[in-house]
Design a protein around this nucleic acid. Sequence first.
RNA 1: AGACCCAUGGUGUAAUUGGCAACACAACAGAUUUUGGUUCUGUCGUUCAAGGUUCGAGUCCUUGUGGGUCUACCA
Length: 554
Amino acid sequence: MSTATSKADNFIEEIIVEDLENGKHDGRIHTRFPPEPNGYLHIGHAKAIVINFETAKKYGGKTNLRMDDTNPSTEETLFVDNIQNDIRWLGYEWEGETRYASDYFDELYALALKLIDKGYAYVDESSAADIEKQKGDIGVPGTNSPFRDRSPEENRDLFERMRAGEFPDGSRVLRAKIDMAHPNLLLRDPVLYRIKHEAHHRTGGKWCIYPLYDFAHGQSDSIEEITHSLCSLEFRHHRDLYNWLIEALEIFPSRQIEFARMNVDYFITSKRKLKLLVDEGIVTGWDDPRMSTLAGLRRKGYPAEAIRNFCMDTGVTRRDNQQSLDLLEFKVREVLNRDAHRYMAVLDPVKLVITNYPEGQSEMLESENNPEDERAGTRQLPFSRELYVERSDFRKEPQNRKYYRLAPDKDVRLKSAYVIHCDGHEEDADGNVTQINCTYYPDSKSGDDTSGVKVKGTLHWVNAETAVDLDVRMYEPLFTDPTPMDHEDRDFMEFVNPNSLVSIRAKGEPALAEAQVGQQFQFLRQGYFTVDPDSTEGHPVFNLTVGLKSSWKG
RNA sequence: AGACCCAUGGUGUAAUUGGCAACACAACAGAUUUUGGUUCUGUCGUUCAAGGUUCGAGUCCUUGUGGGUCUACCA
């Protein structure tokens, strides 16, 4: 069990340790994850989720889940369920019920009134365009709105009438009265409330005015008495406003701390861009295994544990970072190597005949399910005269002494079966190999090998007669460039990888026909594969999760 | 242009807060292996620049340089 004395692993934890030592908030640590329910969670959200939940957990704190649903135009209940599913799948359970910023609309409204009464906010009738002009520019001071100096009484009256629905959309806003010359543009009298005669997914038609992010997020933090409000770097400028409002409103002083977002090679995390991929039909949906969404990664077979490990091991800092896909895939293999059962499937089959194995004869051979885990047990494999092996495991001419696979006059081991000797092959008019002919050493049976034949290579295979057809989806990154968004001169769509999905028909050992959706396997010598939801009874569809590492440069 | 943030091997993150720059991934070499997987061993290579403070600087100061963020009635 972690205690308050746990060593700080990053700058956020340093702050927490210091707060704990100073007895701040009576040693209470409370974080929150505040998604906007208008889209799917992706790998970048995973980082934020992991940071918030793990940090709190480490110091004995709690984490809330709060839907930041202050904009009625964009949010939908549908997304709420998906978000909750994804967070639970990742392995986290939040404190209490799911919170909603919209649950605080009454309190927020009262807070706005308080701000008005204290002379810190005013109702502005300037048009959106005028307000933009009043903002000034970077390095250029803004100008005061002509409505800036109304009395608190007049402002209160106007604001109450805004709420009552007396004014049309866009005709008035509530603005904080701060400083139109402030170097931080966000403090040049930011808009706090806008009029939107629109129904909200939770509050229905109760409201026609809605707070903006800056007057909802921080206040929600305070209402929930969040001690450490962790967010990404682009909110740095908002912190000044966040703190200004805490002081002006005299509410619970949550502390906002920003960390750098995580970027991952070959992944994009822009909500808009992801939607474009879906809308343009580049992918089949938000849960397409090529997507950076948690739904996509899950469907591809990335274990939650691997994603968690990845997020934790990449650390927490304030500098821009670009994580390599290599590390993510390493984390995925690390978990799957431990857990996935090994099966044999031939992705690009070519027939292999063992000419000295009696026709009509067959036998069952035993094979271990996972050499990393004895408890995984063993299974029986049918073996007979005709098999399928991988086309790429045969060469018409032996390459060099570093080549361990099939070629004329070469010996190889068939995994869990016999050592065979390659005698030759047959081919069609175009030179395509149609059959490989071999002889086997009857005394080389796996586990009982007295043949004395030494081989360097071991191949996977399936018994031709009993093999089942497998639909397999081979994936590559969705983009040909690790950072498709980083080209000023080229659109990211230009980098869509035409080979990101290649569907093939493979031959698998019989037991694979029974594979259940979500089950994960290692196809020996190939990679890790996960059964896709598109599977039907007896006809599994497999997704390539990640290939095995290979040190062979053939 | 103004304000703010950031700068350590190819990538990412450490460095007992001023005391021998390390860990992971990647790459490369070897050992083991009935998966060219796993495991094990080794190699490679790092403090943005220039000044300053100090016995001593990745760490502190100054000035540069480079990168990022900010002018939505989005979050």
